[in-house]
Computed example of a mutant assay.
Amino acid sequence: MLIFVCMLSFLTVVNAGSHSLMALATYIVGQTPFPEFSVVLMLDDLQIGYYDSVTWKPVYRSHSDSKYYDEEQSDADTIFREKYYRMKDRAFYLKDHQNHTDKGVHVHQRLVGCELLNNGKPGLLHFWDAFGGQNLEEFIFDIEKHDIQFKMPWAIAWDQLKQLHENFMYENVYHPICIKTLRRYLNMEKNNVMRKVKPRVRLMRKTLPDSQGLQISCLATGFYPRHINLTLFRDDQPVDDDQITGGEILPNGDGTYQMRKSLVISAEEQRERHKYNCTMKHLNLDNKLDITFDTESDSGSIRLSVISVLVLLCVALIITAFIIWRKKTHSAGSVAKPSQSHFVYISMQDAT
């Protein structure tokens, strides 16, 4: 489970406007209906490839450019097969290291991803390793510093020779192939992953009957890519995160995303007349979008509705009185001369 949290973290860590390529590899110890080894390849949030130990061949989302077929097969043999043997050895070591028995199923997962910055420059290569649902190891490879920077201690200590070997492999094999594949599929899938869709904004208000409080929500939806910055303010100061609910980026059914943030305002706070507003920044917005909440609009609507009802009642009473008067006049005029008849016309405007 933690390795999938890392996947979401990686998607949010990459800079706005940049792109990422991630390979999630899974090795299973034990009998299951699933392949012993499998890899899912993701370009940003789009699955572009799959590989497993049943066919030992990569299956890609698009083969519109078949000139890369031989190169893709070669890269798969270089990267995925090598990962299979290394993860297999490591899975059995970790199983013994954590005193697991040979019974049952044990899962080893590895996530490796690189990023291409918005200026076209290669970024960092990230690495996570997990076994049995526990995130064990994490590091990044910095191509500019030619060095691996550890973020979590390793279950297996590296000696100096192994450190040099790993630096060499990541600098000359893994990172170049990752960046090359990322550039290639950015070009092939540019209509999908490089599109920009502006967010639509909705402000929602809900009265909380139990507490007499008010919940205000700011919803940004229909945007792509997924990077967005949405902030709620009270009197021009950001509201503390512990007072806000929501904030997760969720997928829509059409390939776009949404984010909602909500804040509960107590009855006492409403009397203090604070100013609340919602601000968002997105790649497809030239400037930040700033919208102010009207926390008194509900009471204003109620007052308007009451006034409207009273006006309608007054009009109804006037019309009823006029009809009764008209009938009486008509009855009295039936014995009078025509020249003595009186006709009164009243418009709705006069009645009001």
Rank of each mutant, 00 (worst) to 15 (best):
T12R: 12
V13E: 15
V14Y: 04
N15H: 10
A16Y: 05
A16C: 08
S20Q: 04
M22F: 04
A23R: 01
A25N: 06
T26A: 01
V29C: 09
G30T: 03
T32P: 01
P33I: 06
P33R: 07
F34V: 06
F34Y: 10
P35T: 02
E36L: 12
F37Y: 10
S38A: 07
L41N: 10
M42G: 06
D45L: 11
L46P: 04
L46S: 04
I48T: 04
G49N: 03
G49P: 03
S53P: 08
K57N: 09
Y60Q: 08
R61V: 01
R61P: 00
S62D: 15
H63T: 11
H63E: 15
S64A: 14
D65S: 13
D65I: 10
S66T: 12
Y69E: 14
E71L: 15
E72H: 12
E72A: 11
S74C: 10
D75W: 14
A76N: 08
D77Q: 15
T78F: 08
T78H: 09
I79V: 11
R81I: 12
K83V: 05
Y84I: 04
R86Q: 11
R86P: 06
K88S: 14
K88Y: 12
R90Q: 09
F92Y: 09
Y93P: 06
L94C: 03
D96E: 06
H97Y: 11
Q98C: 10
N99C: 15
N99F: 11
H100L: 15
H100G: 11
K103P: 03
G104E: 06
V107L: 05
Q109C: 04
L111I: 00
L111E: 00
L111S: 01
V112W: 00
V112K: 01
G113N: 00
C114H: 07
E115Q: 01
L117M: 08
N118P: 02
N119E: 06
